[in-house]
Simulated assay, not measured.
Amino acid sequence: MLPRLTRASAPLTQEVDVLDEHGQPQRVAIPAERDLTLYVDKRELVTLMTLGAHPEWLVLGYLRNQRLVRSVDEVESVTVDWEVSSAAVKTRAGIDRIEERTARRIVTTGCGQGSVFGALMDEVTALRLPPAVLGQQALYGILEAIRHQESTYKSAGSVHGCALFRGSEMLLFVEDVGRHNAIDTIAGWMWMQGLVSQDAAPDEPLVFYTTGRLTSEMVIKSAQMGVAIVVSRSGMTQMGHEVAQQLGLCTVGRALNRRFLCYTGADRLRWQPQPG
Rank of each mutant, 00 (worst) to 15 (best):
E83R: 15
S85E: 11
A87C: 07
A87G: 10
K90D: 07
K90N: 09
T91F: 12
T91E: 12
R92Q: 10
I95H: 10
I95P: 04
D96W: 12
I98H: 09
E100V: 07
R101E: 14
R101T: 13
T102F: 11
A103M: 11
R104T: 09
R105Q: 15
R105K: 14
V107M: 05
V107D: 06
T108H: 05
T108G: 02
T108A: 03
C111G: 05
G112I: 08
Q113F: 12
G114H: 03
S115L: 06
S115A: 15
V116Y: 04
F117C: 03
F117V: 04
G118M: 05
G118Q: 05
L120D: 12
L120H: 04
M121E: 09
M121F: 12
D122Y: 05
D122A: 11
V124R: 04
T125D: 09
T125A: 11
A126F: 11
A126I: 03
R128D: 11
R128P: 02
R128N: 08
L129Y: 04
A132S: 14
L134N: 00
L134Y: 03
Q137K: 15
A138V: 13
L139Y: 00
Y140M: 03
G141P: 15
I142T: 06
L143Q: 07
L143H: 08
A145C: 10
R147D: 13
R147T: 10
H148D: 14
H148I: 15
Q149T: 13
S151R: 03
T152G: 00
Y153P: 01
K154Q: 11
S155Y: 09
S155Q: 12
S158V: 03
V159C: 01
H160N: 05
G161L: 04
L164T: 05
L164H: 03
F165H: 03
G167E: 08
S168M: 05
E169A: 10
M170E: 06
L171Q: 11
L171I: 14
L172A: 07
F173A: 10
V174Q: 05
D176I: 05
V177H: 01
R179N: 07
N181E: 15
I183E: 04
I183Y: 06
D184T: 02
D184Y: 02
D184H: 09
T185G: 05
A187M: 04
G188M: 08
W189V: 02
M190A: 06
W191R: 07
W191C: 06
M192A: 08
V196C: 14
V196R: 13
V196G: 03
V196Q: 11
V196S: 12
S197Y: 06
S197K: 02
S197N: 07
Q198H: 13
D199W: 06
D199H: 11
A200S: 12
E204Y: 14
E204M: 15
E204A: 14
L206A: 05
F208W: 03
Y209S: 02
Y209P: 00
Y209R: 02
T210S: 12
T210H: 04
G212S: 14
G212F: 03
G212E: 07
G212R: 00
R213V: 10
R213F: 02
R213K: 10
R213I: 08
